[in-house]
């Protein structure tokens, strides 16, 4: 899409009707008004109305938990579907998951309790105050050893460095400085996760070249792979 906005993955089938005794849940994660949230569609494919919906999360890597109760107008009639958003916070119990961004969810209704796993896109945990002070950025960049730097290429990205800056900023990845060296734009960026982990990045953008070089530096190497994935998805979508 040509329009730049907050990146939200398409809804996925988290609970197929065949495993939910007729309840199908399609869902995705996004971030709205400074909070992560789950956006879901509940579809009753059973032949009886459904009532008594509730949701609970297992412990997870970032302590995500529902901020409010699930709001589903009941009864959910046979063949009816309803869209719902569940605001989340990160003050829940923490347990490192493998994969890191996996979350186990239980949904209850009048028929049974159902369990499914979902993958949280890490960018919904990028906070709004993730712009690192420039002086702190330089010191941190030098302080993190080269062994903690991971490079990757983002392909098929026909974006100028200014477009990249804007798109990333809408997703709470902030450009701290920009320099142009030999026609190559170098962007120095920062982001902060809800648990206080900082990630520093350098983007090398050559005008007209659809491949962008991404270098990440962080002390928390566990998150690097997911951050790379987030950059790729934000910049390709």
């Amino acid at each position: 899409s040509g329009t730049s906005e907050v990146y939200t993955p398409a809804k996925q089938a988290w609970l197929p009707a065949s495993k939910g005794k007729g309840l199908e849940i399609m869902g995705t994660f996004n971030r709205k008004q400074g909070k992560p949230q789950m956006s879901m569609t509940f579809h009753n494919k059973a032949m009886q109305p459904m009532t008594g919906f509730a949701v609970q999360f297992n412990k997870n890597s970032f302590g995500l938990q529902p901020l409010t109760a699930l709001t589903i107008p009941t009864p959910l009639s046979a063949n009816q579907s309803i869209d719902t958003c569940l605001a989340l916070n990160t003050r829940g119990a923490i347990q490192r998951m493998d994969p890191l961004m996996n979350i186990q969810v239980a949904v209850k209704n009048c028929i049974d309790v159902f369990y499914f796993s979902a993958t949280i896109p890490i960018n919904v945990l990028f906070v709004e105050d993730g712009q690192m002070d420039r002086k702190v950025f330089l010191a941190t960049w030098k302080d993190i050893p080269p062994s903690n730097e991971v490079q990757a290429q983002i392909t098929n990205c026909s974006m100028s460095s200014d477009q990249a800056t804007n798109r990333l900023q809408q997703n709470n990845i902030f450009t701290v400085a920009k320099r142009t060296v030999d026609g190559q734009d170098m962007l120095y960026q920062s982001l902060k996760l809800t648990n206080g982990i900082w990630v520093l990045a350098e983007l090398k953008v050559v005008p007209g070249n659809p491949t962008i070089q991404l270098s990440l530096k962080t002390r928390a190497m566990d998150v690097v792979q997911d951050i790379q994935k987030a950059y790729t998805e934000i910049m390709q979508n």
């Binding site: 330089l138 400085a177 030999d182 170098m186 120095y188 090398k204």
Partner: peptide, 20 residues
């Protein structure tokens, strides 16, 4: 935003990491 020392540090960082 207008600290010339910091501006210079970023320029040096970018130059040191540029792939011509």
């Amino acid at each position: 935003e207008d600290d010339p020392d910091l501006d210079d540090c970023f320029s040096k960082l970018a130059e040191s990491r540029s792939n011509p």
